[in-house]
Design a binder for these strands. Sequence first.
DNA 1: ATTACTACGATCCGAGTAA
DNA 2: TTTACTCGGATCGTAGTAA
Lengths: 219, 219
Amino acid sequence: MRENYDLIFKLVELGVLKTPLKISTVKLAKELGMSQQNASRKLIQLEKSGIIRREITVRGEIISLTQEGRKFIESIYLLLKKNLEEAMGMIVKGIVFTGIGEGGYYVTRKYYETQFLEKLGFKPFPGTLNLRLVEPKSRYILETYPHIFIPGTKTKYRTYGWVKCFPAKINGKLRGSIITLERTHYDEGVIEVISPHNLRKELGLKDGDLVELELIELK
Amino acid sequence: MRENYDLIFKLVELGVLKTPLKISTVKLAKELGMSQQNASRKLIQLEKSGIIRREITVRGEIISLTQEGRKFIESIYLLLKKNLEEAMGMIVKGIVFTGIGEGGYYVTRKYYETQFLEKLGFKPFPGTLNLRLVEPKSRYILETYPHIFIPGTKTKYRTYGWVKCFPAKINGKLRGSIITLERTHYDEGVIEVISPHNLRKELGLKDGDLVELELIELK
DNA sequence: ATTACTACGATCCGAGTAA
DNA sequence: TTTACTCGGATCGTAGTAA
């Protein structure tokens, strides 16, 4: 038996977890963007599979969850909760290395400085900290995280690429932001970090040191 | 585009929220109880709808979430969280009335006394508090909540019906349990409450008084 | 090993309509 | 107004294979 998640989630949205739901198949169908007949059939299926209980009246039906239905919804919730919470506050680890100084040039451009101040709330120390990711695959996870986007721009003289900012706490102490650039000479296994602080100095970092970045949740 | 929830939840279960997932369509299909071909197609669909990103290698594929995919999953999580949390710690309200004393007879039977002590952890005061539900429909919600079940039993002389117990805090103070009975003379709009305390006396209750019961979460 | 195409049977969905 | 049946077209799922 197919589980009809769209229907179940719609019923939850309509408050079926809190109170039995009085609704006609016409209205429900409209909510779901499907035909009345289909909504009716799906309700029958949900009833047969023991998720809901129905009471049909002359002017609509009253839908309530069975205990099994509540448990089913809770099981989805718990699955997502467990996995989302473990994934949140993600730690990114990287090894310090000395780059070619490109990032440092970048972040001191007026355009970016203004954008960083506006969107991150700080003026970066002139220079970026280059990190080679311990687990290069974490780059992909990083990209799925909410981030602050600074679009590219053009002047008469040159073009500036976009920058994605992932605010983070650095070694559990200083705040800053991972940035990934549209235009970079580095491969996917490399990230750069900006901060209002001189990270090398204040954290006593030298090439080869491990740095841990804890992503700060956005909103 | 159908959302393929089963596939999405399976990917979550396999940890796609935490790290890109290296898995073959054969294994994934086995996990989902479907054909390899179908798993393959569903992955293609999920990719087309922008939920996941895929990288196909000779020995399987690497599946990672897009930012949109993560948001989609979070949106389901937040929907369930909001509704489940609002529904939890549910308050049931009822008006005290004097019954025919049937409940009092019931709970003092040896069989039930033993069961209550074992499963609820207390020996009930000999007598039940009868409540007429303020919102009779809350009876249906109640039935969807996890509860402790005491099965029926038979002796040579008579038959005892099952009892469902919903542990609750009474008027924010005393502990006890709502019970619903297989054999009752009351209609659906009535519940009974047992407690180690003499509720009428300790809470100063008389007929017509309002009582609030906060369900205690099980497990 | 893999992934994923084609072909075909199964299932689903919407329109018409009964009750 | 309701809910939900039948029927036909659309979509889905599996088996057989190709690459």
